Amino acid sequence: MLVIRPICAADFAALKQIAVESGHGFTSLPDNDELLLSKISRAQKSFAEQVTSPGQQNYLFVLEDTQSKEIIGVTGIEAAVGLDAPFYHYHIASHVHYSPRLGVKKVVETLNLCNDYTGASEVCTLFVRDKFRRGFAGQLLSRVRYLFMANHPERFSDLVIAEMRGVSDDNGHSPFWAWLEPNFFGIDFPTADYLVGIGDKSFIAELMPKHPIYVALLSEEAQKVIGQVHEKTAPALRLLQKEGFLHRGYVDLFDAGPTVEVALKSIRTVQQSQLATVVITDESQLPAMDSGAQNYMLCSTDVCQFRATISPCIRYAKENNTLLISAEMASELSLKDASDVRFIGL
């Protein structure tokens, strides 16, 4: 069974492997042992903390195969960004230049440095290892965050964002950064990306141009990738768009990948999921794995012992709003008879 759960100290080796496999541009998981250990510790503290409003919490989850004990992927939520350090973006603005005398009208785009998303919650750190990119792994890692947020809205902002990885190659070459680097920074993209990943953002304020950048002055290669995503990130973007996330002109400082946003209450999974009561029953009363029955995503409502999975081996009884599950599934999800459970049909 594939089960989502909060990360723990024993997952360090798997998290490090994922950090290596994710490669350049995956800023939230740099290959740095001290930082990865710190992320695990911070996540454990966040799950244990009593929270009434979003703050410095970071919720990091892993997807585990409960039979092989192998970690398949990772996903996370930042409760509120930009509280301890500026959270920078470029915002794409359009300016109309018009000369009535000459009959010339030009629309000029500029990139404007801003921190407009300060305080927003961020869904982040979603990565599925290559050999497991099949079935429902990606969907579970993506949508489980919204089930958790629906259970505990007080822990999150009314606005939710997601930063998408921009275009770069296997060697860490970013066409957008290739233009910025010689003009302003003097360090390569992997170095800049790594510094941001370990929390060292001071160089941004020190070296980033303070005035708007005219897009037309960038190289043709740099202009083409503004607002575009890395090929490995495209499936994640499609999942976000299905949830209602929209791009409103904000892009990353380094690779120009898009940042998308949505109101928490407008997220599809938040709107369509519902609470029910668990009833543990014999497996013979439930659809078989290969029966072709509808799949359900379900999760517990606990914070520290949060668990979630996807399975067709479930029966929903609408007449009394109960979710019938097997004893094995109840055990894996830390559920008992009459436990509350949040679910959504897929």
Rank of each mutant, 00 (worst) to 15 (best):
P312C: 01
R143E: 11
W177T: 10
A308H: 06
V108M: 13
S38L: 06
Q17W: 09
T66N: 11
L159V: 14
D255M: 11
M164Q: 11
E70K: 15
I71Q: 05
L140K: 01
G103N: 10
S219E: 08
M164Y: 07
R101M: 11
G172T: 00
S99H: 13
S266L: 08
T27E: 12
H91V: 15
T191M: 12
D130M: 10
S311D: 07
D31Q: 15
G55T: 07
E332Q: 13
A19P: 03
L111W: 03
V270C: 01
H89Q: 12
P235M: 00
A178H: 08
V262H: 01
Q241N: 09
L333C: 06
N112C: 09
E231M: 08
L15K: 06
V108K: 14
A137N: 00
F176H: 09
K69F: 05
L207D: 08
W177N: 10
D340S: 13
I280D: 07
L264W: 05
Q305T: 02
F343G: 04
P30E: 04
V196C: 13
Q271A: 03
E221V: 04
F132M: 04
P182S: 07
V260N: 03
G119C: 02
G73I: 00
G73Q: 00
E231F: 10
G227I: 06
A330D: 08
T125R: 01
K336I: 03
V303N: 05
P54L: 04
L246S: 15
V96Y: 06
T191E: 12
L246A: 13
A192Q: 13
I161C: 04
V225C: 09
K16I: 09
D252L: 05
Q228E: 13
R315V: 03
G103H: 11
V74F: 03
L246M: 15
E332G: 08
A293M: 04
L37A: 13
R129F: 07
D252K: 06
L36E: 09
Q305D: 08
S331P: 03
L159A: 12
